[in-house]
Amino acid sequence: MINKKRWSLKSLNGPSPFELAMMVLSLFSVLLVIILTFSKVDEETRRLLLFIDTSICLLFMSRFFYELFKAPNKKFYLKHHWIDFVASIPAIEALRIARVFQILRVIRLIRSTRTLLLPLLRQSKQTTLAGLLMAMVLILSTASVIILLVEAGAEGANIQTAEQAIWWALVTISTVGYGDYYPVSTVGHIIGAIVIVSGVSFFGVISGYMASVFVAPDSTERSEKELRVERNDAHQELIKSTLEQAIERMEQNQQQMEKNQLQMLSEISSLKQQLNDKK
């Protein structure tokens, strides 16, 4: 029963943590495209949204070429994932709608698997790394956009451009705090406090992740070691059972030989008795 249960857990095949992270980023990028297309925003906010979208496109393209390099059959990969490359091309708004197909493909993978939690738990390191990447992109993007919208019209504000908003978000989430750009409004201070707390939590998770990489063994390595131990135990049990059966057969053969020997001795003694009677 244990082996069957373990086999069923390993046979669960669902989307990888990075596929789920790319799906969330695709949803976010589609939202950016909708805002850029249908909303009237000022020039600096539009530049900031375009910068964020281009950065997400570069992430998509890097993952596409990485998976293409790893794929054993590159023609097959290109045939089934060419839409990922098309959706990763920046600065062409018409092609960005192709990211909807990325989302639909991952949703189809989610629907095809019986559970989503167990595959993520079995790939704990990939899940942590994908979650950190996704959280960093979302926090930086959201914080920079909101702080630019809030501070742009405030009196005495020094965060006026897309570059300044991105720089402030990077400095704040890293808790460095250069102080060259800072919010002046109450809402900006609240946003800054949230970003600082998020940054502390974010780098705390990174520290724990790095510790697990160098200290704790990988879950797949543990499972392989457990599997090897189980195979060795099963092999030893098989050898022990075979030896016991062989010893049992030898004992049976020995008993049969002793029985045959007694029977032969009985017959010999009977023949001797008959010879003596004839004499």
Rank of each mutant, 00 (worst) to 15 (best):
I110N: 05
S26D: 05
L27V: 10
R222K: 04
L170D: 00
L49Q: 06
P183R: 01
L227E: 15
M136D: 03
Y178C: 11
A246C: 13
S174G: 09
V176E: 04
F18G: 01
N276T: 15
G153Q: 07
L59V: 15
G199A: 08
Q126K: 08
L59G: 08
S212V: 03
R231W: 00
A98N: 03
Y181A: 04
D277A: 12
K4G: 13
Q160L: 15
G131F: 12
I159G: 05
G177Q: 09
K259H: 09
V215H: 07
P15H: 07
L68Q: 01
Y182L: 11
T220Q: 09
L170F: 10
W82N: 03
S207D: 03
K40L: 06
L121M: 04
I194S: 14
F203I: 00
I103Q: 07
Q236W: 12
I92E: 02
D84T: 06
A21G: 15
I107Q: 02
Q273S: 13
M210S: 06
E248N: 15
R122P: 10
L132F: 04
D180W: 06
L59N: 02
D218W: 03
K10Q: 15
R46M: 07
I2R: 13
N260L: 12
T242K: 14
F51I: 02
E224V: 00
V215Y: 14
V197S: 06
F85N: 00
H80S: 07
R122Q: 12
D180E: 08
I110P: 01
K5V: 15
Q236A: 13
S124T: 15
M264W: 10
V187S: 05
V24L: 10
Y77N: 08
W167K: 04
G188A: 06
P217H: 12
L133V: 11
G179N: 01
V100D: 08
D53L: 12
A94G: 01
V86Y: 01
A157Q: 00
F85D: 01
S207C: 04
Q236R: 11
F65M: 03
P217K: 09
L95M: 04
Q273T: 15
K259C: 11
Q245F: 04
N158F: 07
Q123M: 02
A135L: 10
L275G: 14
H81C: 05
I34Q: 09
E258F: 09
G204M: 03
L31V: 13
L140F: 03
V41F: 07
S11V: 03
Q255S: 10
P217M: 05
R111H: 05
